[in-house]
């Protein structure tokens, strides 16, 4: 029993790492652009598929394909913002939300068109897992968690040590004051999309490593990603780390008592409870 719980906790931390990377992006974008970006899951999927092209097409190892996928997804996010969201900056947030819902659907269609509708994986064959004390750990799991830790640390340094990172926090803190301080909002917005899109790409790749690639993978993970962002207090990227871990662990551990199919329901339930009891999130949110 203890071993089983530990095993589930390992899965939970892996899932939590993936959700965290997605939720940080959602939170950053919410903090600066003030809308819930519903295409974020599909941006994750797009990143995963960029990687697949290099892995399956050119024989890259997954890790080597990641930088290209990060750049690709960052550019895609910026392009979407410039062609669509930018024209809606003065619209109410609700309109941007609907627009991003449309973008989500469009991205998924693009994925189907380019990469086809079937399930795909990065590497065929089974990884040889490490076993000790009855626990099973796949090398991929270690990479995913390590990768997330490194990226979160890098993001922390970016947000606290660089001028642009601080400007992002400033805009999220007080948009009007940022403007009158001379912070160029459009440039900061562009960087925000680049960071959010890049993190989404890695989250997508990790999700693809952990499970498989499928055009619907992004939309399916959107609910837990938002649950994580909301739990952490949407608009607070640091909260997203805690939120991601809580949601990831809860989803995996819950399978002890309920049918694993209903994992998303666990994320949903936690999110709704949080919204009702403490709408500002575990930590004080920006909303």
């Amino acid at each position: 029993m203890v071993t089983e719980l530990l095993q589930l906790a390992i899965y939970g931390v892996v899932l939590g790492s993936i959700l965290t990377l997605g939720a940080i992006g959602v939170s950053l974008i919410y903090g600066i652009l003030r809308f819930a970006h519903f295409a974020h899951g599909d941006l994750m999927a797009l990143g995963a598929y960029f990687s697949l092209s290099l892995v399956a097409g050119l024989g890259f190892p997954v890790w080597a394909s990641a930088p290209f996928a990060i750049v690709g997804a960052a550019l895609a996010a910026i392009a979407i913002d410039q062609t669509v969201y930018r024209h809606l900056r003065k619209s109410p947030p609700i309109i941007l939300l609907i627009s991003s819902f449309g973008i989500a659907i469009a991205l998924r269609s693009v994925i189907q068109l380019v990469w086809g509708p079937r399930n795909q994986v990065y590497a065929s064959g089974i990884q040889i897992p490490w076993r000790f004390e009855g626990l099973v750990i796949k090398p991929d799991h270690v990479w995913i968690v390590l990768g997330a830790v490194v990226l979160v640390a890098a993001l922390h340094l970016f947000l606290t040590r660089t001028k642009m990172g601080k400007a992002m926090r400033a805009m999220s803190d007080n948009m009007d004051l940022a403007l009158v301080s001379g912070i160029p909002s459009e440039r900061v917005i562009m960087v925000t999309w680049a960071v959010g899109g890049g993190l989404a790409a890695v989250a997508g790749i990790f999700l693809g490593m952990d499970t498989r690639l499928h055009p619907v993978m992004g939309w399916s993970v959107l609910l837990p990603v938002f649950a994580a962002a909301i739990l952490g207090g949407i608009g607070r990227p640091y909260g997203a780390i805690a939120g991601g871990m809580v949601i990831g662990l809860a989803m995996e551990m819950s399978t002890v008592v309920i049918d694993p199919t209903y994992k998303p329901a666990v994320a949903f339930a936690l999110m709704v409870i949080m919204l009702v009891v403490r709408p500002q999130g575990l930590f004080k949110g920006n909303a």
Partner: peptide, 23 residues
């Protein structure tokens, strides 16, 4: 439960409802 929430939170909640119904 959700009617007191802001509209964007409600939107996310409805994704969850639809997903749970589908499952």
């Amino acid at each position: 439960i959700t009617m007191r929430l802001r509209s964007d939170y409600l939107a996310i909640a409805t994704i969850g409802i639809a997903e749970i119904i589908r499952l």
